[in-house]
Design a protein around this nucleic acid. Structure first.
Length: 480
RNA sequence: GGCGCGUUCGUCUAGCGGCUAGGACGUGGCCCUCUCAAGGCCAAAACACGGGUUCGAUUCCCGUACGCGCUACCA
């Protein structure tokens, strides 16, 4: 017998960009479900109208799609359990809250935000634990009725048992114990009629037949409330897995101000989705062997919740860079030219043909961490004239040996045809045997003459990229 | 403060009672080589601390310390 195919969901709130931590949560949900032939649902949790950002949901969807994470159900995708946007499900939450009210498992609270705030401050001042004092829990039916008749706004709170404790299982952390006396009477429906996360996520997960809730560790403290709600409704709770947090270098929760946290930031810098996904997959999970390079499809086959670790993981940009460099180098020339295109043009380099762009970009593939790195390497191609910056370089080129090399090379190159790396290499060999100069003394004057740089890729390749005419022109320009 | 969770090289991690504690990034060195990058090889680098349990603890249990998270009519 096998368990039914899982149904999981990624449920971001549309408050802006997609956080890399969110990407990892989405990824783990996706990998877990895909590996078991299950379904992945995207649900937008927009019950906080004060934090709503126009277009954020669409941005979330397109960023997720860029990363290669596809959903089976969700806004704009469809499915049998919609709508998938919580703001469109208000009646559902109200009805469920009403049910709890009828069954005595929730109550109306008429305390105003100001009153609650004052109460909290007082508790803190008296060094007591800030918690709702439950004053409205004891209101008589008549009291409640008269306040409602007066049009007083109210919230609906859940009636958490006053004593006792509860246990629940977490797929990542094992058994967890929590005492009821440390759990507040959580607000389920806000005075604006919208549900809080706690009510909405429980109701939706049940109605959408979610089997596994895979979310960040920041939800662990409120998990007992959610379990309690499942009990209140008489529903079977899904399995829970709370993922370790992604951290800054100082081990605080990964945040802006200490580097880029938006997936969009990495996307716009040219990081490859495959590299970002591969890197992030290994932050809190490992395959159990020494492999590190995984495609999305391979991750789907290999991923398991059992191998998710418990401790937070520092987001190390250096390692991301290594992954990106690996993926960049593995790209076929055409694709590399494609991803580097914008930065090549920004550096003032326009390739006449696709083949030309590919040849140029391939020459520098091993130099790139991020596509934008290409710009610095292309400068020598766009140079109108080569100017040696340091006295050391000028002296080197002006030496009599160097001059001999330059003259001989230019003379031979003049009539060389065809002009490609092998021919140029043979030509340099010829210069060597004609002049008796070899090694650095042979190459450096040519290299400086062509690029004004002491470092760079294979000299023959550089000459090929420059073309015969330009090569000769640059060499001659350095002959005194 | 309270509650919860966590703790193996600088970082990501393997380890599920007996290992010279393994791999990767980064760092250093060597090789390759006209140079740089890439690549190959090598090196330095970790079990937070204290008690137990056990013939034997990185591993199991309990404390302590430290870190993080939560403590909203935000998610």
């Amino acid at each position: 017998m096998s368990a039914p195919a899982p149904r999981v969901r990624f449920a971001p709130s549309p408050t802006g960009y997609l956080h890399v931590g969110g990407l990892r949560t989405a990824l783990y949900n996706y990998l877990f479900a895909r590996g078991l032939g299950g379904r992945v649902i995207l649900r937008i949790e927009d019950t906080d109208r004060t934090r709503f950002v126009e277009g954020a949901a669409e941005n979330l969807a397109s960023t997720l799609a860029w990363a290669g994470i596809a959903f089976d159900e969700g806004p704009g995708i469809g499915g049998d359990f919609g709508p998938y946007v919580q703001s469109e499900r208000s009646e559902i939450y109200s009805a469920h809250a009403q049910q709890l009210l009828n069954e005595g498992k929730a109550y109306r609270c008429f305390c105003t935000p100001e009153e609650l705030e004052a109460s909290r401050e007082k508790q803190v001042a008296e060094k007591r634990d800030p918690a709702y004092d439950r004053r409205c829990r004891a209101l008589s039916e008549a009291d409640v009725q008269s306040r409602m008749d007066n049009g007083m706004p109210f919230t609906i709170r859940m009636k958490v048992p006053l004593v006792g404790q509860m246990y629940f299982h977490d797929l990542v952390r094992g058994e967890i114990t929590m005492h009821f006396d440390s759990i507040d009477d959580q607000v389920l429906i806000k005075s604006d009629g919208f549900p809080t996360y706690h009510l909405a996520n429980v109701v939706d997960d049940h109605l959408m037949e979610i089997t596994h809730v895979i979310r960040g560790e920041e939800w662990l403290p409120s998990a007992p409330k959610h379990h309690l709600l499942y009990d209140f409704f008489g529903w079977e709770a899904p399995a829970f897995a709370h993922l370790p947090l992604l951290l800054n270098a100082d081990r605080t929760k990964l945040s802006k101000r200490q580097g880029d946290v938006a997936v969009e930031d990495y996307r716009s810098k040219g990081y490859l989705p495959a590299a970002l996904v591969n890197f992030v997959a290994l932050l809190g999970w490992n395959p159990g062997d020494d492999r590190e390079l995984f495609t999305l499809a391979e991750l789907e086959k290999t991923f398991s919740l059992e191998r998710v670790s418990k401790a937070g993981a520092v987001f190390d940009i250096e390692k991301l860079n290594w992954f990106n460099a690996q993926y960049l180098r593995a790209l076929p020339p055409a694709e590399l030219a494609e991803v580097c295109g914008p930065w090549m043009r920004a550096a003032g380099f326009e390739a006449e043909t696709p083949a030309r762009a590919e040849a140029v970009v391939s020459a520098f593939a091993s130099y790139l961490t991020v596509p934008s790195d290409i710009g610095a390497h292309l400068r020598f191609l766009t140079l109108g004239q080569v100017t040696l910056e340091s006295a050391e370089d000028r002296d080197l080129v002006a030496s009599s040996d160097s001059q001999k090399v330059l003259v001989r090379f230019a003379d031979l190159a003049e009539t060389q045809d065809p002009w490609a790396t092998p021919e140029v290499k043979a030509l340099i060999k010829q210069v060597q045997s004609d002049t008796g100069i070899k090694g650095k003394g042979l190459f450096m004057p040519l290299r400086l003459a062509l690029s004004a740089e002491q470092h760079g890729p294979d000299l023959g390749l550089m000459a090929e990229l420059l073309g015969r005419e330009e090569t000769v022109r640059r060499i001659r320009a350095q002959i005194i």
